[in-house]
Design a protein around this nucleic acid. Structure first.
Lengths: 225, 225
DNA sequence: AATGAAATATGATTAAAATCATAATTCCAT
DNA sequence: ATGGAATTATGATTTTAATCATATTTCATT
């Protein structure tokens, strides 16, 4: 099993602020796990009792609404932490985490990491920063949901994924989402999402290769009204 | 000028976790201010350079969207802190804060409080908890915005204000909002908000006394489809 | 009390998106 | 390779909410 103190993934999240000793201790109690595409890591209401560090793969954080639709709130990628919010409030999970492709995760039990949060202020300040960043993004999503059209939200989602998660060598978005996932990010019906994507294609803003999407005219996408 | 160490307001926020010494130091550098109803405390893009502690009054946190509408993201009341998020990330304000009635605020400069965040882990953990709570609420709002009707969102907003901020002796909501404010919380047009409120009135779910709203049938409101 | 502006209210029409229906395509397991 | 399920796609219709147009009411100011 890999050692936390040598793991390069930690550079991308708050764990980088832990001391060598703290990392060695965490390393000895962490569990590694492989999650298959489509599997649920935790669901709403679960007691998570720790945090996950994403070593590889991508997952979605979503919440089931009363109308039966699953709203995606965030995409979590390699290097991110998962479950910090519940860890801090001590509540059960507010969201469901589902793997979008095969994943490799490390699970750090609550007991181990809570002490570090209380004793290592650099670490807790880093977690605070990440949480503050998430809160800003969530506020911005609220504004977009409330005030923008499906067309605008979908254009922005494609740009967001492009800018934050990058592309494959052929230029397609590296995060592969189904049309249903797009609908569940944007908060619309699957048919509406598909329709708008078709429209974008007709307008030359994007190109599709199977279900993969490639941005063809990013300036045009940004100007979508 | 009042002293922080004797101020009862701090019991309602993370400042309660500061030591007597820390409070005395903060007390000596804080500024008290009176803000009139409708005045802007800070706007998007401002460098806040500190946090505000709300001693009295209520304000809204909102963001101007490209369509010209002002989306309200949060209502901040007596006892809450204001500006923590920007303080932590060191960014300029993401939201605008506008007083909904006359307010009394204490402003604590960044320099003073940042040290406490880095040195007093109980305090920073408290701030972390508040931020985690805000993030959960924001996630829930995203889901509601995306998946519920204006009617449902407005019903939930009335219930939320009732449960979180209470009522006046006559039973009306203690937080007095204009129909436009309701529209900007729900993310709809003013006319639509007014129409739905009229409908609620016809259905006997609420009663209005001028612009004030009183819940008449909370179970019915909760069941709104 | 009179005046006028702002806020609230309601109706008519239009626009956006959901829903329902049905093809066409892709993809996976056998 | 092939059948069948899942996904993607598109059309027709309905629903929801926005917009435009006017009243009506409320409220602060003179």
């Amino acid at each position: 099993m890999g050692k936390c103190e040598q793991c390069i993934i930690k550079q991308f999240n708050a764990l980088k602020s832990l001391s060598k000793e703290e990392l060695v201790r965490i390393s000895s109690c962490k569990t590694s796990m492989i999650i298959k595409k489509g599997d649920v890591i935790f669901e709403e209401g679960d007691s998570i009792n720790g945090v996950y560090c994403v070593k590889d793969g991508i997952c979605k954080l979503s919440k089931l609404s009363s109308n039966g639709k699953d709203q995606i709130v965030k995409i979590v990628v390699k290097g991110d932490l998962l479950g910090q919010r519940s860890l801090i409030t001590g509540e059960t999970a507010n969201l469901q985490a589902t793997a979008l492709n095969d994943m490799e995760l490390c699970f750090i039990p609550k007991n181990e990491i809570v002490n570090d949060l209380l004793n290592n202020s650099k670490f807790s300040f880093d977690v605070l920063k990440e949480m503050a960043h998430d809160l800003k993004e969530a506020d911005d999503i609220i504004v977009n949901m409330a005030q923008k059209t499906v067309r605008q939200r979908l254009a922005e989602t494609i740009i967001y994924i492009h800018e934050n998660f990058g592309t494959n060598p052929d230029g397609t978005l590296s995060v592969l989402l189904s049309r249903e996932d797009f609908a569940n990010i944007v908060g619309t019906a699957v048919e509406s999402a598909i329709r708008v994507l078709s429209q974008f294609k007709k307008e030359g803003l994007i190109v599709t290769i199977g279900k993969r999407i490639k941005i063809n005219n990013i300036e045009g996408l940004k100007r979508v009204e």
